[in-house]
C-alpha cells in the first residue's frame, strides 16, 4: 500500500516532512492525504475508520524517519471523543471488553488451523530416479554406521567376557587353575570351588556389583561437546 520511493533517503524526508507537504512523486498521493494534518481543515472530523487505520499504519511504517507528534486541534478532539450521549458507547465498550478474545489466543488459533504444509514432492522421471539413488545411498550409510556401532559394542562385550573368564580361573598367586578347581559354575558367581576362596577372588568382587545401582555421579552425565570447558565442574558453586 504505502510503497516508498527508493530514491528518497531518510535525510531528505526528515528535512522535508516537518515543514511542507513532500513532493507528490515521492510517495503515492492517496496515502499522503491522510498524513498531512497541517493542510487538513480544522473542523473536518475523521469520518471513516479505514482512514484512521491507514493513517496509523502509515505513521508506524514511517516511524523511524518521521518522528513527530501530530497534535490534533481542539476542534477535532471535541468532535471525535465526546459524542452527545456517552451511555451507549460505554455499554458497548463494556460488553466488548467482557467478550473479547485475547489477540494472542486468536493468533495461536490461526496458526494452529493454518499449518504451512508444503505440497507433496512431484518429480519427473529422471529427477525422481536421482532422488531415489541419493536416498538409497543415505540408507546405506545409516546402516553401515549402525552396524559399526553394533560391532564395536560386540567387541567390547567379548573382551569383557574373556577378562571375566580369565579372572574366574585365576589363583591368588596369579596362576591359572583348571575348571575343576575353580568355582563360579552355574548362575551363582559366588560359588566356591575345591580350593575355596583363594581362586577367583577378583571375579567374585566384580560380580558383587557393589555401588552400581545407587546413583550415577552428576559429573558423569555431561553431553559431549566439541569444545568442553577447561574445568569440567564448578565445585566452588554455592547457592546464593
Amino acid at each position: 500500500m504505502t510503497r516508498r520511493n527508493p530514491r528518497t533517503t531518510a535525510k531528505s524526508q526528515a528535512l522535508q516532512l516537518p515543514t511542507h507537504q513532500p513532493k507528490p512523486q515521492l510517495t503515492p498521493p492517496t496515502s499522503l492525504k491522510m498524513n498531512l494534518s497541517s493542510i487538513r481543515p480544522a473542523f473536518r472530523p475523521v469520518t471513516s475508520r479505514i482512514a484512521q487505520l491507514s493513517n496509523n499504519a502509515l505513521q508506524r511504517s514511517f516511524a523511524p524517519t518521521t518522528r513527530r507528534t501530530i497534535r490534533p486541534t481542539p476542534a477535532t478532539t471535541t468532535t471525535t471523543r465526546s459524542p452527545f450521549s456517552t451511555t451507549a458507547r460505554l455499554l458497548k465498550r463494556n460488553r466488548s471488553a467482557k467478550n473479547a478474545t485475547d489477540p494472542r489466543i486468536t493468533a495461536i488459533r490461526y496458526h494452529l488451523t493454518h499449518p504451512l504444509t508444503p505440497r507433496p514432492l512431484h518429480f519427473s522421471r529422471t529427477r525422481a530416479l536421482r532422488h531415489w539413488t541419493i536416498h538409497r545411498a543415505w540408507l546405506l550409510f545409516l546402516r553401515k554406521r549402525r552396524r559399526a556401532e553394533e560391532l564395536e559394542l560386540e567387541r567390547q562385550y567379548n573382551s569383557m567376557r574373556a577378562a571375566c573368564e580369565h579372572l574366574r580361573l585365576l589363583d591368588n598367586n596369579g596362576n591359572r587353575v583348571s575348571e575343576a578347581e575353580a568355582g563360579g559354575q552355574g548362575p551363582d558367581a559366588g560359588r566356591l570351588g575345591v580350593r575355596g576362596r583363594e581362586v577367583g577372588r577378583l571375579y567374585r568382587a566384580a560380580m558383587l556389583k557393589r555401588g552400581v545401582w545407587g546413583s550415577v555421579p552428576v559429573e558423569y552425565a555431561r553431553v559431549q561437546t566439541d569444545f568442553p570447558g577447561r574445568e569440567g565442574w564448578n565445585h566452588a558453586w554455592t547457592r546464593s
Binding site: 567390547q156 562385550y157 569383557m160 571375566c164 574366574r168 563360579g184 552355574g186 558367581a189 552400581v212
Partner: peptide, 15 residues
C-alpha cells in the same frame, strides 16, 4: 558401553 559394563553378569562358558 558403560551401562553394558556396569550391568554385565558373567556366566561361565557352557552354562
Amino acid at each position: 558401553p558403560d551401562v553394558l559394563t556396569l550391568t554385565y553378569q558373567h556366566y561361565p562358558p557352557g552354562y
